[in-house]
């Protein structure tokens, strides 16, 4: 009897081991190693234990606060817009129109395209002198904007591109949510004389609230970790206008060789995201309606 249980356990271990090994080696060990590192100073070969100095130094590190400010700006610029836009597009795609699968493909295409390739293409679109966006602005009689070389516009340029890139993924999730709403609800609402707006307001919104919550949490988390588009398009510039937390961390570790300080930032970022998610669960999840 006992032998059978053991066998079962062993075979289960067999199946999860390849995956678990990968997660353990490439996720968990580095995470704890970086936590360990954040208490040390000095990078190569020798390092000295400094306690929480790396953390306390962050409080006076103006660059860190600036990068935090930039990241929050990015999150506020990206998350709500993404949710609203992807819900609207999902609603449109949920209706019976011709060529539905073509539209879905078009919206999903940016998601599966490599962020590096997409960034390069957008860099061309944003080009001050020959970019498509500025040509369009000039065509309708507006002044060209030096998108990536103006500290007031650079972050907005990155936000626009990121929204475009992430839209398709959220559209698909919303679409799944919309299709899960039972048709009878709309039918009976119609019989009761509810118009489209009331149906949307009182049936659609509450019924997809779990999906909205999911999208909200996930896009907040990923927005706090934004890096690739900044690295590819502006390198944190002009000046430090688009230096977000992860770029600042990368810069500290791999340009300035301050591994300890950079690990401390990574851990603080983890705490911020963790706190944000907890906050969202405590506050926002109260408004979520779970039907079963």
């Amino acid at each position: 009897m006992k032998n059978k249980k053991l066998k079962k356990l062993l075979s289960a271990l067999c199946y999860i081991m390849p995956g678990a090994m990968i997660i353990l080696t490439f996720h968990f060990i580095p995470i704890f190693y970086s936590l360990y590192y954040s208490f040390f100073k000095g990078g190569l070969g020798k390092k000295t234990f400094v306690g929480i100095t790396n953390y306390s130094e962050l409080i006076t590190d103006a660059d860190f606060w600036l990068s935090l400010k930039n990241t929050v700006f990015y999150v506020i610029g990206t998350v709500p817009t993404t949710i609203v836009l992807s819900l609207i597009i999902a609603l449109l795609l949920n209706s019976k129109i011709k060529g539905l699968s073509i539209y879905r493909t078009i919206y999903y295409l940016p998601v599966i395209t490599s962020i590096n390739a997409v960034s390069l293409v957008w860099k061309w679109l944003y080009n001050t002198h020959n970019g498509l966006l500025n040509s369009m602005l000039e065509f309708i009689g507006l002044n060209p904007i030096s998108w990536l070389f103006d500290k007031n516009w650079a972050m907005i340029a990155i936000i626009i591109m990121s929204i475009w890139k992430g839209l398709g993924y959220n559209v698909i999730i919303f679409l799944a949510g919309l299709q899960g709403i039972p048709k009878q609800l709309y039918e009976s609402a119609e019989i009761d004389g509810a118009g489209l707006w009331h149906q949307f307001r009182n049936i659609t919104i509450p019924m997809i609230s779990p999906v909205t919550f999911f999208v909200f949490v996930m896009s907040t988390i990923s927005s706090f970790q934004v890096f690739a588009q900044v690295y590819m398009m502006t390198q944190g510039g002009p000046g430090k206008a688009t230096t977000v937390i992860v770029y600042h961390l990368y810069d500290k570790a791999f340009q300035k060789f301050e591994l300890g300080g950079s690990s401390a930032i990574a851990f603080v970022l983890f705490l911020i995201i963790f706190a944000m998610t907890m906050f969202q669960r405590k506050i926002a999840e109260k408004k979520v309606h779970y039907s079963n």
Partner: peptide, 21 residues
């Protein structure tokens, strides 16, 4: 020096800030 390596990066950032203002 490795300090200068940091410096040239900071200088680049400030120059960029100046030239884009």
């Amino acid at each position: 020096s490795s300090k200068w390596f940091q410096c040239r990066q900071v200088i680049g950032e400030i120059l960029e800030e100046c030239l884009t203002e």
